[in-house]
Design a protein around this nucleic acid. Structure first.
Lengths: 248, 248
DNA sequence: CGACTTCTTGAGGGGATTCAATGTTCGTGG
DNA sequence: CCACGAACATTGAATCCCCTCAAGAAGTCG
């Protein structure tokens, strides 16, 4: 682990890979300097829980690299993932002090953190941050509502196809490539994490992955490396009429 | 229909029943006057579709009285309700011009509308509106995420109990009463609308309503009038560990 | 190599759906 | 006033998709 080096990975916001998509996207140079002054980096290993539901929230943060999940757990252990956090996504709610969900790193993860109080103070003085946060929250709400349709009405096969499509879209967007034709992705999730996100069991996930492979919708190399020979075909399998709205 | 009278129902914002909970909640007297100048009321009958997915959004609005749903429909007709709108809830997204969902009145409905452009202009000058909208959007996101758990992991019985609990909470909150002990509600939804919200079929909804009645969790008078003799018992049936966060 | 975690595959069971019929409520007109 | 029909709801029987339980395979790390 190169824990010591990582905090220096992006000493200045100007060189940050999520600069133009994160909560700071609309900030001017001077506003960026204010953020820069209170930010600090933290890194986490795959599998690590960053925040436990009910914990006091000491900070808010942006995902810089890696993927994390938000999840809710019922008393009897049933688990539902309620959010997938990709680079540039924001965690934490200004004005609230206990965490409503578990936040778990599903890959190695680098976060750009702000202590809550200084961030709130800065936000009060910086409309550009609040504006961007509203925009991002509205996007997240749309994404959550798309997921409601998935959980409520889609078949297991459609659920898997939808998840693969989302990951492929975010991945393409990150690489500034169009999400079309042949795509190759590395799943940032275990079969169990996929199941928790899709409201399925890990066995069903595995079976449907095999079925999609058998039917030529995807190709598998190992468990995580997935080739999508024809993205349109995958979208068909996902049952989506709308071509899902990834911003940017 | 007394359509002519309703637009005058709340000529001034000061006497508006949702004054302190809607998007205008934080506004000062002068800000309220600006809103007042551009607002207009519209009423709709139960069953009417106010907005079709894909339509141009001409306005944003607050629910004043009644209940509406946001819903998504797949090509083959599968329908999922992705939001229940109670009095004070907000519809529409500044900065977007086509509607992503159908908005349907499930009861007679009174809306306080603002044409989109004037509202956006006003919002740019009035941080109190943007602040409140952010707050409300974050609350909606939490509600949507609670619903993800429901759709992904709860049994049909738990789903019904959860819906009854939500309606009872919103109803109690509206009447400024505590949500505890014995409660009486009128369901603003048909069995089919309940099914669409819960990711079930209407037959399953009906069966589970009967089962909850048989087990003494609820009492039914007609199809819509529900008595909850013991709210805590209902919450147990809903499988919730957290005591669901209705703001205010 | 062997222990562990992760994943795949199979067999059987169960909760919700589908298909179908009956019941209830309510408004309308004879 | 009550019969009639339409909309909404309840109940039953059979089916199916996904889950549960279980065993074995495949990768991973000491």
């Amino acid at each position: 682990m190169a824990l010591q080096e990582i905090p220096l990975a992006h000493p200045q916001c100007g060189s940050c890979p999520i600069r133009h998509r994160a909560v700071c996207a609309r900030c001017e140079a001077d506003e960026l300097m204010s953020l820069d002054a209170i930010k600090y980096y933290r890194s986490f290993e795959a599998g690590q829980t960053l925040i436990w539901s009910g914990d006091r929230m000491e900070f808010v943060a942006s995902v810089v690299t890696g993927v994390a999940t938000l999840s809710q757990v019922m008393e009897d252990g049933r688990t539902q993932t309620v959010g997938l956090l990709f680079p540039s996504d924001f965690v934490g709610r200004p004005g609230r002090d206990t965490a409503p969900y578990n936040v778990v790193a599903t890959t190695d993860l680098l976060m750009c953190c702000f202590r809550k109080k200084p961030f709130e103070d800065l936000m009060a003085k910086t409309p550009h941050i609040a504006q961007r946060l509203l925009e991002m929250t509205l996007d997240e709400l749309d994404a959550a509502r798309e997921w409601l349709l998935l959980l409520g009405r889609k078949t297991a096969r459609e659920k898997i196809a939808s998840l693969l499509a989302i990951v492929a879209r975010r991945d393409a967007s990150l690489k500034m490539l169009p999400a079309a034709g042949k795509l190759v992705i590395d799943l940032p999730l275990t079969r169990e994490a996929m199941a928790d996100y899709l409201g399925l069991t890990l066995e069903t996930v595995s079976r449907q992955m095999s079925a999609l492979k058998r039917d030529g919708v995807i190709e598998l190399e190992g468990k995580r490396h997935v080739t999508i020979p024809n993205f349109d075909r995958l979208i068909e399998e996902a049952g989506d009429d709308t071509d899902g709205g990834i911003p940017g």
